[in-house]
Design a protein around this nucleic acid. Structure first.
Lengths: 342, 342
DNA sequence: ATATTCTACTAATACGAATTAGTAAATCGA
DNA sequence: TCGATTTACTAATTCGTATTAGTAGAATAT
């Protein structure tokens, strides 16, 4: 049986009585209100009573009175498909915790009506702000009632840029990844691209690839590019295609680590050594995969944790001034994680 | 700029005025209090006013008055190290959502003092219940104040069984995994075991392995067992060791999918075919890995989602009776996911 | 000595909803 | 036909805290 004491929790009034002062005084002491004079002796008595009763403030009552709940709503779409993106939640949670706030999470599983209801529920619960997170960088269409409260978009953005947002710098990531490959002397750099035409995660990395090539005075050779989804199978298939060309690439930039996982298998089946014959750079730095492939995968890290942190910090620092300034569109750099594949 | 309307949200009193009734009546209508007679016509007027003003109840005020917040606290340790375990959160969230409740998540990053403070914060916020989740099955020591509120342990348990808990049936999982291997005729089944002596995830799977062997009339051959941590490197090293024995195993039960990932590499390096030469069964059914190894990995699924669901359902169904019954220790079966490695 | 300013508190109220205890008018019962 | 019900509401209170507006009494100023 659960030994749960059923006695009513003490309130400020209980503390006040025990300390022989008014509830008002208790409130002043506990909240360290400086503008009011309370003798040290009284303060001591109050704190003693607090300790004796194990008094704990009722955050709900506080919330009602002050109209601040110190709760930040966190709305996500499909976490399932991208478990590594939970680092966004971790980052946000840590940042919130460090300033005494807490996250209320609703996972909408990609269902638009639940999104709407999710925002609605958060508003009912008087969250101080909302973070609307996508599990991969793309345009989103949050329910309109999100504008009722300070909000920031995490790893996504709205078409009219009417909400602040933090996203990964996909273009820079794509560029750096490609440059790493180019720099080690590969003249033919293949590219396994994500095929979603309207998602930044796909288009940004592609643009970065193009820019790097251009910086090295090369044009885009369409025959070196393949489009697929973010799976190992897709990576396997297209890597084989690439390597079975007359003049196969000597390096491949894989749009995601999962594709890289497939690429590894294809190269192994075709007896190519990594990185000796073909160098590989991935994207995402997905735990569980990147560090454990053999050889360990060099890849671009998606700064999920940092983005999560940034989102809540921004909310906390600019809660009041949000409607005074144009919504920031923040980019977070993707660091290159060097391992052994390039 | 964020187009955030600053007008005060309407309260019940505003609705009441517009509808020409008392606040009490509005409350009765909105909450469909049957015991009180309200004419249909009046109800209509109230609902009209609600719609006109876009009235939305203030859950904080409700919480203060009713002493139920419909918030369930969810305390986790290191999510980071086991991203696939977020399915527990998903399951819990979905179950909560389906009955109008919501999750408040705090990630303690394994720090005991934060755990304590986390529970404290949740109690301050008047959560209706707390779920204390571990990212892998083991004994835990939750802060004592958790007993102040209905609580259940998720993928963990306390030594004195004083709290209800849901965990994966590790023994059954280990047994089934081994039986699958035995059934296909392998006479020598190797085992890559987790080396944590006091974690069920380790000991349970080991015990299952032993039971299966016994059921087939075999004893434990210690030479076929290796102890390592849950990484691909560890899986690689010990699989090589096993396969370089005089009489190598013809099947290997890997304590985790990550170990299996390493085992695949080792077998490939030694030119053994999976499953023809060596059959493999993993454990966890970790997304991103299991389905994408080549050949796809047969493995035991850790029923994270179900455990998460169970936890909140249990809390909801038994909230009042928790202190009347001995704490349930619920086991959830690990299903075998057949793919191509065994 | 008296008006003024401090010092150290307290009384009263508000936050937004739920709920208990009524109440006026209509309906019923015999 | 007159008291008893029933119907359809409303007034007042409560939840636990923060905050504004006071208020005695002591210290200071003039």
């Amino acid at each position: 049986m659960q030994k749960r004491p059923n006695k009513r929790r003490p309130t400020m009034l209980d503390v006040a009585k025990l300390a022989g002062v008014s509830q008002t005084t208790v409130s002043f002491v506990i909240n360290r209100v400086a503008a009011v004079g309370i003798s040290d002796e009284t303060k001591e008595r109050v704190w003693d009573a607090v300790r004796q009763l194990d008094y704990r403030p009722n955050a709900v009552a506080q919330g009602l009175r002050t109209k601040r709940t110190n709760i930040i709503g966190f709305l996500t779409d499909e976490v399932a498909s991208t478990p590594f993106a939970v680092h966004m939640i971790e980052g946000a949670q840590a940042a919130a915790w460090s300033v005494g706030k807490i996250l209320m999470i609703v996972n909408t599983a990609g269902d638009q009506s639940i999104k709407q209801a999710g925002v609605e529920m958060m508003l009912e619960r008087q969250v101080d702000a909302i973070i609307y997170a996508s599990m991969y960088h793309r345009e989103v269409h949050p329910p309109p009632n999100i504008y009722e409260v300070p909000a920031v978009l995490l790893d996504c953005f709205v078409g009219d840029r009417s909400l602040p947002s933090v996203v990964a710098e996909e273009i820079q990531g794509g560029r750096v990844a490609t440059e790493v490959l180019l720099r080690r002397g590969s003249h033919r750099v293949g590219f396994l691209s994500l095929d979603h035409p309207n998602e930044q995660a796909a288009t940004g990395r592609r643009e970065g690839y193009r820019q790097a090539l251009a910086a090295y005075g090369r044009g885009l050779d369409e025959s070196l590019i393949r489009f697929g989804d973010s799976t190992a199978s897709s990576g396997y298939r297209y890597t084989r295609e690439l390597m079975e060309m007359d003049e196969p690439p000597t390096a491949i930039f894989c749009g995601t680590d999962r594709m890289a996982m497939g690429a590894y298998d294809a190269l192994r089946d075709l007896s190519y050594a990594i990185p000796a014959d073909v160098a590989i750079v991935g994207f995402d730095n997905q735990d569980v995969i990147a560090a454990y492939l053999r050889p360990p995968l060099s890849t671009m890290e998606l700064p999920h944790y940092k983005m999560g942190e940034w989102a809540v910090r921004y909310l906390i620092d600019h809660a009041d001034s949000l409607d005074m300034v144009p919504p920031v569109q923040q980019l977070i750099t993707c660091p290159f994680i060097e391992r052994a594949s390039a």
